[in-house]
Design a binder for these strands. Structure first.
Length: 271
DNA sequence: GCACTACCGCCCAGTCACCA
DNA sequence: TGGTGACTGGGCGGTAGTGC
């Protein structure tokens, strides 16, 4: 999909990209190095645009996902999914609250094959090295919450490219948060229906107070569901975005099967 | 060649929405 | 509830197209 993308180039917005596509300039290879362009670009602007296009070819050959992530708007970063899905990890965190002193409680990292859980006070150290294996992080609201929170709380620097599904889904008209969006798209959370981030804070506090691992299990189940559902959300969002391009037939994104939740939900633990 | 118009991208400030 | 990134709208500047 990236070779069909011009939005990361300077002076190319949605209107200009659409015009390029309509005039048969469907990929980087179609860009005319001489002659007229169907869009209004001065000589100097065209030079600048073609320079970035040239660097784009090198970046794609080098699988440099960060190059494209830095140039695309957050709501356009879905285009990275097609070329870099194999280097992606889905990520969701739970915390003990929102204030300055809040800590990371549970993290799930899922790469489409296996999910790993990290728990505060137990194995958070392993997270720091595990996350570095991935070039692309996919989250919901991660750009605003998860990534800055992790960097502050764990003293990490996470330089990976990101697809934040929040602005992508917003641009498709899905507002109201992750749970509401999942419901609207037909993703069922089963026994975790109605559980939210505030409940996650409650479950962690009860686990800390009582040492009862059923609270941690339920919290882990919630965090696991939040994370693995991101893959389905990403596929659905990308599919919907594709329909607005001339390339809907070219890319097929079968819905991934959601892995079984390895953690048990104890309903008596929920408030 | 000039003036005008339409279009587009960029920038900025204010507002909104979302995370746990 | 606090923090922050995304969104929105308006202003500005640059360009192409058109008509004279």
């Amino acid at each position: 999909m990236l070779t069909h993308t011009f939005r990361h180039l300077p002076f190319i917005g949605p209107a200009n990209e659409g015009r390029l596509w309509r005039h048969g300039i469907l990929s980087w290879a179609d860009w005319p190095l001489t002659g007229r362009l169907p869009i209004a670009l001065s000589g100097a602007h065209r030079l600048l645009t073609e320079e970035v296009l040239c660097r784009s070819r090198e970046a794609l050959a080098a699988a440099d996902v960060r190059f494209f992530a830095a140039l695309l708007k957050p709501s356009d970063c879905w285009r990275l999914f097609f070329d870099f899905r194999g280097q992606a990890a889905y990520l969701d965190i739970e915390t003990s609250g929102l204030d300055e002193s809040a800590e990371v409680t549970v993290i799930t990292l899922y790469d489409g094959l296996a999910a790993r859980r990290y728990v505060g006070g137990d194995n958070l150290d392993a997270f720091a090295s595990d996350i570095m294996r991935y070039a692309l992080l996919i989250s919901y609201g991660g750009r605003r919450f998860d990534i800055p929170f992790l960097e502050r709380a764990l003293g990490l620097r996470l330089p990976q490219a990101q697809i934040d599904l929040c602005p992508v889904l917003h641009s498709l008209g899905y507002r109201g948060g992750l749970k509401k969006t999942e419901r609207a798209l037909g993703i069922d959370r089963g026994p975790l229906r109605g559980v939210d981030g505030l409940t996650a804070v409650y479950l962690w506090r009860r686990y800390q107070e009582s040492g009862d691992r059923r609270f941690l299990e339920t919290l882990s189940a919630y965090n696991f569901a939040d994370t693995v559902n991101l893959e389905q959300l990403a596929c659905i969002a990308c599919e919907m975005k594709l329909t607005a391009t001339p390339f809907a037939e070219e890319f097929i994104l079968p819905l991934p099967s959601t892995p079984a939740n390895p953690y048990q939900v104890y309903r008596q633990c929920l408030p």
